[in-house]
Each structure stands twice: as C-alpha cells, then as structure tokens.
C-alpha cells in the first residue's frame, strides 16, 4: 500500500474535484432532479475520501476494503488479483499511442477521412509497427479504398474536414459542428 503523492493520487484528486463540481452545480436544479446526484455524488465522494485517506494512513483503506470484501466481495482476494494484473506500460509508450490517436483526430477534423486515413495507416505501420514502407503503403491503400467504397455505397457522408476546400466533396470545406 503506497502513501506517497503519485499519478494515482492526482487522478483521485481530479475525480474529487469533478464530483464536487457536479454537486455544486446540482444546487441550481429542481428538487426532484437533485436526489440522484446528491445520493450518488455523496457516496462517491465518501469512497474517494477513503482512497485519499488511505494515502495518509494505509490502514484506513485496508480496513474499509476488507469490510466491503467481507460483505459483497464473495471471498475474492483483492491483493491476489492485483498481483495477477499485468504491470502498466511505461508512460512514454502510453503517451505515444495517445498522441497517435489525438493526431489522427486533429488531422481528420481538419482534412477529413478520405486523405488522412490511408496516410495515417501507412505512417503508423512504418513508424511504429516497423513494417516495410512498400508493404505498409499497399496495405493502407487497399484497406482504405475498400472501407471508403463500402461507406460511400452505404450513402454515408464521410467527414471531409474543416480546412479550406482542396478537393470539392472530398477534402476540406465542411462546416464546423457546434460545440
């Protein structure tokens, strides 16, 4: 049981802030709409406090967890299960994957699916999966073509991107959605 400030501690604090913000916002709503957020938010906040208190005094979390396990855990051995779980990947590796996903999203938002999809697949296969460029480009082109043909035949209007129109109806010229 850890008692130091780390990523998990920060994440739990963020959850606490989220729940408190929702509870405060609830004050504005009619009485019947307050029940669910108050009950749920209150209980969630209580358990989040137990998690935070467990950082200061690990016995608080151990005791609460044991009591809850006794009641509803059906004898599951939490510590044993934790040991069986895979160790998490390193942050640089995780951030790299998140970066790919966000970069693909931004590129699609700007230029649309038609152009970005084959480029993204081939670049990813070359840079991250270490596939030979010729093979990566061929696979990306064939799969993107099949996907796009199928979607066009289904009369799905694929997103073409908010960038100024480059190729009419295919790349650029979309109206940004209301956020």
């Amino acid at each position: 049981m850890k008692s130091r400030i780390d990523g998990e501690f920060v994440f739990v604090l963020a959850l606490v802030a989220f729940v408190i913000a929702m509870l405060v916002a609830t004050l504005e709503y009619p009485p019947l709409l307050r029940y669910t957020p108050y009950i749920t938010g209150g209980l969630t906040l209580l358990f989040l406090c137990v998690l935070l208190a467990g950082r200061v005094n690990p016995r608080i979390l151990t005791w609460t967890e044991a009591a809850l396990q006794d009641m509803w855990g059906g004898g599951a051995d939490g510590q044993k299960l934790e040991q069986m779980a895979e160790p998490p990947s390193s942050w640089p590796a995780v951030l790299r994957v998140m970066g790919y996903a966000v970069a693909y999203l931004l590129a699609v938002y700007l230029v649309g699916f038609f152009l970005v999809t084959p480029v993204f697949i081939s670049l990813y296969l070359i840079a991250d999966a270490k596939v030979r460029p010729a093979a990566a480009i061929s696979v990306a082109a064939v799969l993107s073509f099949l996907l796009i043909v199928a979607l066009v035949n289904l009369h799905v209007d694929l997103w073409i991107g908010v960038a100024p129109e480059i190729i009419p109806d295919y790349v650029g010229g979309a109206i940004p959605p209301q956020l």
């Binding site: 989220f18 669910t36 137990v50 979390l61 967890e65 396990q69 939490g78």
Partner: peptide, 20 residues
C-alpha cells in the same frame, strides 16, 4: 457492489462516476 469484487472501494467509485 458485486461487480467490484477485487477492488471494492474503486469499483464503487467507478459506478458512482459512471452514474454521474
């Protein structure tokens, strides 16, 4: 409560966050 088995406190927090 029953789905949280291995990690009760965090499971209940997850349920609450999902509901909110």
């Amino acid at each position: 409560a029953f789905a949280s088995r291995a990690n009760m406190v965090k499971g209940l927090v997850g349920g609450g966050v999902g509901l909110m």
